[in-house]
């Protein structure tokens, strides 16, 4: 046996310690690194600068409803891809990808439950699903949410988040503006509150329909809210936009909102509001 023969195995190369790439969250506003766990425990609000991150329907329902009091409403079935729309990709492929990514069937999910013991239906638009865009699916879900509220004699609270109408459904997406307006008219006929909570971002046809028709208009801090997109405006008027333009605080200053409410205070605010607007409609 040659003395050159290795008696011992070589030193095992030092294995790289596994660091999950989602351990840290970098705040898009203040650029601070925050433990993801800490960020999530704080309802996706940056503990350093109070920037409100985008959150989906399930997280909202958990945060707002009394524990164990809520159930998600079934998604209405709608015609898929009514125009057989195709740009660089097929619309059906885009929907499939969004469904896989979010686990939801479309961009607006409703749930019914109780907020501090008071009945409410809450609809939440999911920006992660094709930019929250409004098509037949969102319009139909809005009607379902409003009608559930009417059946349960309780408020309908909508959390908006959308780039606007879903272009791949063409004119039919535009027609969701009058459609959702009809659902709001039904709520008004029934004497029930319709409360809007605008979240980041809410623009286009969504803002120009159900997002601006609330009996009370609330927004989360810093949310981008507007009709026209900022680039479109800059290209039209060829001017720089003022500081804070189209942000929640700016809209509050211009009389378009009743209040800007921190995510941590939303549940208490909504509960108080329901108490004022729908008294005697307390859940038995």
């Amino acid at each position: 046996m040659s003395w050159l023969h290795r008696v011992r195995k070589g030193i095992a190369s030092i294995t790289k310690r596994e660091t999950p790439d989602n351990l840290w969250h970098k705040c898009p506003k203040c650029a601070q690194m925050i433990f993801t766990r800490e960020f999530e425990d704080n309802a996706h609000v940056c503990p350093k600068c109070e920037h409100h991150g985008r959150i989906g329907p399930k997280a909202r329902f958990h945060a707002l409803f009394d524990e164990g009091s809520w159930t998600v409403l079934a998604q209405p079935a709608v015609r898929e891809d009514p125009l057989k729309f195709r740009d660089q990709k097929r619309y059906t492929d885009r929907i499939k990808a969004a469904r896989t990514a979010t686990g939801e069937t479309d961009a607006l999910i409703n749930a019914k439950g109780k907020i501090e013991g008071q009945k409410a239906v809450i609809g939440v638009q999911d920006f992660a699903f094709m930019g929250g865009s409004m098509g037949l699916g969102v319009g139909a879900a809005f009607v379902v949410g409003a009608r559930q509220a009417i059946a349960d004699k309780c408020p309908y609270i909508i959390f908006t988040a959308a780039g606007g109408a879903r272009m791949q459904e063409g004119i039919l997406s535009l027609m969701q503006m009058p459609k959702t307006t009809v659902a709001i008219a039904e709520l008004r006929d029934a004497g029930l509150p319709y409360i809007v909570v605008l979240t980041d971002p809410t623009t286009g046809g969504v803002t120009a329909s159900y997002a601006m028709l609330g009996d009370v208009q609330i927004s989360e801090p810093g949310a981008l809210i507007g009709f026209a997109g900022q680039r479109v405006i800059e290209n039209t008027i060829r001017e720089k936009l003022p500081e804070g333009f189209q942000r929640a605080e700016y809209l509050l200053d211009h009389g378009m909102l009743d209040m800007v409410v921190h995510r941590h205070e939303l549940r208490a605010t909504l509960a108080q509001l329901i108490g004022y607007l729908a008294p005697g409609k307390k859940a038995a």
Partner: peptide, 9 residues
């Protein structure tokens, strides 16, 4: 689409 139009809602 303009600044004043947005400001006035």
């Amino acid at each position: 689409p303009g600044i004043q139009a947005e400001e006035r809602g």
